[in-house]
Simulated scan of single mutants.
Amino acid sequence: MELKNKVAIVTGVSKGIGLATVKTLLEKGCKVAGWGRTNANLEHDNYYFYKTDVRNVEEVNASYDATISDLGVDIAILVNNAGLGFEGGIEKIEVNQWHQMFETNVDGIFYCSRLVIPQMKANDEGHIINISSIAGNTGIPNMAAYCATKHAVMGLSHAMYKELRNFGIKVTCVYPGSVKTNFFDKIDSVTINDGMMMPEDIASTIVHCLESQANYHHVDIEVRPLKPRK
């Protein structure tokens, strides 16, 4: 896909992978709608922020309406990045934390994707990027709830790509290992360190997938730090 002048939606844009992805897409000439609970510290003529909690379907619908009003209906790219995680044993994790993770990490992808797909089908072009985690295909002790959400993202992504591929729509699921972001602020067992990947690394992978030629489809991309610190 040629990215210049394409319209992209990115969720979870305040920092980390979301912010890095927004910046990289802007550098490529995209017009970017950033959906998030908090705006990024970013000013750019082609960046538009819409306050959105992806757990809330009404807020998602309102942000979509505002986005197409400002940028048009031809949304070519959706990066479902919004996500969070809490640490805790399966018998100790709080019920509200369980629901918050599923509502953000899984429901949010459904709420956002269902809106952009019809026009992508009409255009015979589109690319949806879902950010999972290596936790989605590797069980991690004391992270069962988070692992369950990211495994659901994998299953959802695989079903989506098989449903949509014949309409010219690509669906790619990205599984990062540890990335140096604020995600670990709530994970006491992990200390942020320089052995982790950087958000810009994940953004470059996303753009690599987006820029592939039309009949070349990245389905699953797993990325990890080469020399992770223990």
Rank of each mutant, 00 (worst) to 15 (best):
N96R: 14
F184I: 12
G136F: 06
I134N: 06
D53S: 04
N41H: 11
E27W: 01
F184E: 09
P199R: 07
A152W: 04
M101P: 15
R55Q: 11
L19Y: 09
E125D: 07
F49Q: 01
P199S: 05
M154P: 08
S212T: 08
G139M: 07
I206N: 00
N5A: 01
V106F: 06
E87D: 05
S204V: 06
S212Y: 08
R55N: 11
K230T: 14
G155N: 09
R224N: 11
C147Q: 01
A8M: 04
G126T: 06
S212W: 04
V179F: 11
I187S: 14
N46P: 02
V79P: 12
G177K: 02
D53C: 05
I117W: 05
R165W: 10
V174H: 02
I202G: 02
V73T: 13
D124K: 07
P176Q: 11
M196I: 07
E103C: 12
K162P: 10
R37T: 04
G72C: 02
A152T: 11
K230I: 03
A159H: 14
I187R: 12
N182M: 11
N215Y: 10
E58Y: 00
R165F: 07
A8I: 00
E43V: 03
E58G: 01
R37G: 09
D124V: 06
Y111W: 02
I109M: 13
Q100K: 14
S189V: 09
N61M: 04
V171K: 00
S132F: 02
N39V: 10
V153Q: 03
D201I: 02
K186M: 13
K170Q: 13
A8S: 02
M143Q: 12
V73F: 08
K230E: 13
C112R: 05
A62Q: 11
F86V: 12
K15D: 15
T38F: 09
R114D: 07
F86Y: 15
I187H: 08
R224C: 09
D201M: 05
E222P: 08
T67R: 03
T21C: 01
V153T: 07
P225Q: 00
L210V: 01
T104N: 15
T38E: 05
M154L: 15
H44E: 07
L164H: 09
Y216T: 12
S189I: 11
I221W: 06
A82E: 03
H217Y: 09
I75S: 03
V54F: 01
S69C: 01
H217E: 05
V95H: 14
G83T: 01
A122C: 08
R37M: 13
